[in-house]
Design a protein around this nucleic acid. Structure first.
Lengths: 278, 278
DNA sequence: AACCATAATCGTAAGGTATCGAAAGCCACT
DNA sequence: AGTGGCTTTCGATACCTTACGATTATGGTT
């Protein structure tokens, strides 16, 4: 009944004498060969690479993950492809830092979003990841308010998103707009949920940022939102910074990763913040 | 309304050569191929794709749903079409259309800009080219106001630019923000020069655009600018469109290319518009 | 024109296999 | 003892299938 048809790619590749076995290579060596093969054929599969280099598939997956981080390929279930020029080229250094955590955090954040809601996405790499995942989420329609240029660009290609920007003056460090122009525009809007990208969180004080105008804008964002959700990988906990955006009491939820220090998590929960660990 | 009934499927054998089967692909790979096929033929059907990739129609439907979410196509009963005015391909096509002319036009436009000035860049491919060249121009500091997302992204990497966005709701066809939010923000600003990207110019009427909210925003832009400069390659002259942005009399200057019809140029000059030919 | 019958297509669910990531252990080499 | 590179193990996902009831397009009939 369940007549599953296995992809017989192994056979396809074996027919050629080109799939010679190359065991006993150094790590870098092997990765270079993977890149070569990819250039040559346009695609590689985990299984065929494991066979060729006589390693486990786990090792190959690690290689592919590393090469993807380096931008040499695009991962796909079961294998990898050459990156297609154009779309996802702009990868900054910061984006790769704690990237896996951010992806998990973003996944949880997106799962909170219901159809028809209005959400606010603050600037930051974690919120940018949320934007990426919204694009691929099974949502019919969402209103997104954002002050971040990169978030806006990401969502510009998501047809189900009604995108609203409050405007302002660009601050390059965060790729986001701030200033009284945007604050005035925000005052006229209302949102269901705010995803606040935190630079630093202290469990006894609250969310902090190094930039004052952005702090003010964030304050406005909080005022017009029913629920405030901070998103931050665990490296941000117990850090401090110049200006306080929100007291702990104003925070409804924090999504962080499981490497978060237990003391910080406990303290936050004691103060009424719902903490989710990705 | 959308008819995908494969009535010409009778000649299936004729097309057998061109619709080769491609089984055993990675997910991403298959989706890329679907995009390619769509570009190539303008339309794809669920059934034909399922046959080609040797999968079930359910799988194809999932692919099409994912691609639609990503904005690569528009779903319709039985198949999918290229997005009518989407930004993925059409934008790149549009970008290369009359590209050489746009570059020359932009060069002249940038030469008008003086250090310390405040300029407004409207949305459009020509104004985007102006943004590109501003990045490389020998300017110390310029204030740029723009409602276009792609222009903003281009200028985000230009340190000498103080970038201001009025905000608004995204219109995907032009990658730009409009709406009363932005108009209110604009009202508080003043600019030396407005570079208006025209969709259509009629020498007796003025500058026209197909989108009403954008027309209103453009009107506000004109009100706060000392000088109004329209930029448009010659293919835009003598064209007409729905809503009128500006009468000829409100226009101070037009920069276009030398292929502009002499009659149109003469008429514009007679009415007091300074016309520069790139 | 409104109507219905029929067939194509749709979305969702249930179930199966392949692949995945995380964790723990192995081993050679400093 | 510590480290880097690898493996095996195992529960969790991703992908794809068939099945089935709901929805939509088509073409003939009233």
């Amino acid at each position: 009944m369940h007549d599953f048809k296995p992809r017989d790619e192994a056979g396809a590749e074996l027919r050629a004498a080109e799939s010679a076995v190359e065991p006993g290579l150094l790590v870098e060596e092997r990765r270079r060969r993977i890149c070569d093969l990819l250039q040559e054929r346009g695609r590689v599969t985990v299984v065929s690479l494991a066979r060729r280099f006589d390693t486990s598939t786990v090792t190959i997956r690690a290689d592919l993950a590393a090469l993807e981080r380096a931008g040499a390929l695009v991962r796909s279930h079961g294998g990898a492809l050459l990156p297609r020029d154009g779309l996802d080229q702009p990868l900054t250094v910061k984006e790769t830092l704690h990237h896996a955590e951010k992806v998990r955090i973003a996944r949880i954040a997106v799962s909170l979003i219901r159809d028809g809601e209005t959400i606010i996405l603050d600037s930051g790499t974690t919120t940018a990841e949320i934007a990426k995942q919204i694009r691929e989420a099974p949502l019919q329609s969402v209103n997104v308010i954002t002050n971040a240029l990169n978030v806006a660009t990401l969502l510009a290609s998501a047809p189900m998103v009604r995108l609203i920007m409050p405007g302002g003056i660009l601050r390059r460090e965060s790729n986001s707009l701030s200033g009284h122009v945007g604050e005035a525009a925000l005052a006229e809007l209302r949102a269901d949920r705010l995803f606040l990208g935190a630079d630093a969180i202290d469990p006894t004080l609250g969310v902090m940022t190094p930039h004052l105008p952005e702090a003010q804008l964030n304050l406005k964002m909080m005022e017009i939102s029913r629920q405030v959700v901070a998103v931050a990988d665990s490296s941000k906990l117990l850090r401090r910074n110049i200006s306080l955006i929100a007291h702990v009491e104003q925070l409804h939820m924090l999504i962080t990763d499981s490497a978060a220090p237990a003391a910080a998590v406990d303290e936050l929960r004691r103060r009424g913040v719902e903490v989710l660990l990705a």
